[in-house]
Design a protein around this nucleic acid. Structure first.
Lengths: 247, 247
DNA sequence: AACGCGCCTTGATCCAGATCAAAGCGCGAC
DNA sequence: GTCGCGCTTTGATCTGGATCAAGGCGCGTT
């Protein structure tokens, strides 16, 4: 369990705030931007933020664990998943820097969280956040807005899982990654795809074999190119979009 | 468009509050329970609440419509769904009395809403609610809690759609309906199933034929009985639960 | 270099659930 | 009553993606 911790300085929190646009889904950082009482609030935030580094494949917490801690991804990619007793797995989401982890009203986590790549997270106790929320209602708003947009994404995913075929799923997945990278200011076209075939399969409700075959098909039809280092070039956005929308 | 409207009296709002427990997911009513300023708040609420009655099969709004109104189901069952251009449909949720509709941060609805049975809803303009939220932070909390629990339900549904087989899906569905009925104080065992086979199919990512066959199988194996008036008796909770959990 | 170990790809076969097709079965209109 | 229409059930067949089974390929270790 390689898990290094050290207290965030106030400076690092400020710096973190600078490299993220106010509307990205990073609660702590963007909430400080929102608040009217920035300086005061930021000071309190800096006091409770703790940075956590994990290797690839590290389980941060498991479904059912006591949900006393909140996390905010600052680097790397995380995956959230649920398991059935016989081992079937559904990944419910991939988290990129700025995403939030552990937004639960219950006292246990509803899913497990594991790093896909080496990752850094900002962690803080839930109690402390709740205290902050009392004092800064705009944080509440922000938190609600985040939950709402996650809900909208979940509904899109239900449509995908319930009604799209393999090709449509892969196309939707690649476009989603591209869209998210773009909104965070990363390269949107050769998309970075850091997760394994098996992770993609468990996210899209398919098997690794089907994911692999479908990538091959898309490559053969020139819609995408598979590049070095887990990058995928989207050659024909037109076609991919049509596929994703199920036209 | 059979759409009758009349202003709610303050009395009806109070009455509504009485037949719902504080922790049911009915935002307006339970928020009034939560707030320290009940009398004042309730007065303001009563001013803006408007009751809406619709027939079965009525489309309340469609995906993409301007999302300027919020609804709160007070009687009947609603369904929310998304469509693909070729007509494939995914129902993302069924709403029972007390459920909330239109929780969107965007300015357009992310899904369509249609009544399954004749239904009554309390409607109010989003702007007015936002004003209330400014003044009553506990409403914010309540709203956030609702969005969180919807999110948790959405994640369960992803597991179902991505990884469960037909029998497991139907068992999960019936148990979910039973659980929800119970928490609202309705009969939990002969479960009321007001929706058509085709609605169930579009909720579970199956076809009507498969839904029908699976009901027959469960009936044949004595796990359930199909009763009059769209009721289903769950005979063998043990087996159903095992199926639903995928053991 | 040779080996082992995870992935990933590719091929062959299988099967759960889709699709196609045809009755039942209410139930309201006339 | 009986006609028609929508919903449901049941049967026969088909198929997209799962499963089973080999290799291939990159990479770190000895």
């Amino acid at each position: 369990m390689a898990l290094a911790e050290h207290a965030c300085t106030r400076e690092s929190a400020v710096a973190a705030r600078i490299d993220v646009a106010p509307c990205n889904a990073c609660p702590v950082r963007s909430m400080s931007v929102c608040s009217a009482l920035e300086a005061d609030e930021l000071k309190r935030l800096a006091d409770i933020l703790v940075s956590v580094k994990v290797d690839a494949g590290h389980t941060l917490f498991a479904e059912g664990d006591g949900a006393d801690t909140l996390f905010n991804v600052t680097a790397g990619t995380m995956k959230l998943y649920k398991l059935l007793p016989d081992g079937r797995r559904q990944i419910t989401g991939f988290l990129l820097p700025g995403d939030f982890l552990g937004l639960s009203i219950n006292d246990t986590y509803a899913y497990s969280a594991e790093s896909v790549t080496p990752a850094t997270l900002c962690r803080f106790p839930r109690r402390r956040l709740e205290g902050l929320l009392e004092d800064y209602p705009k944080m509440q708003r922000r938190l609600f807005a985040m939950a709402s947009s996650e809900l909208a994404a979940a509904q899109d995913q239900m449509l995908l899982l319930g009604r799209k075929n393999a090709k449509e799923r892969i196309a939707s997945f690649l476009l989603m990654l591209s869209e998210r990278a773009k909104r965070r200011g990363y390269a949107e076209n050769p998309v970075h795809v850091p997760m394994s075939r098996s992770d993609i399969a468990d996210y899209l409700g398919l098997t690794t074999e089907t994911v692999s075959r479908t990538f091959t098909q898309l490559k053969t039809s020139r819609a995408i190119s598979l590049l070095e280092g887990g990058k995928v070039r989207l050659n024909d956005m037109e076609t991919l979009q049509e596929l994703a929308e199920g036209a």
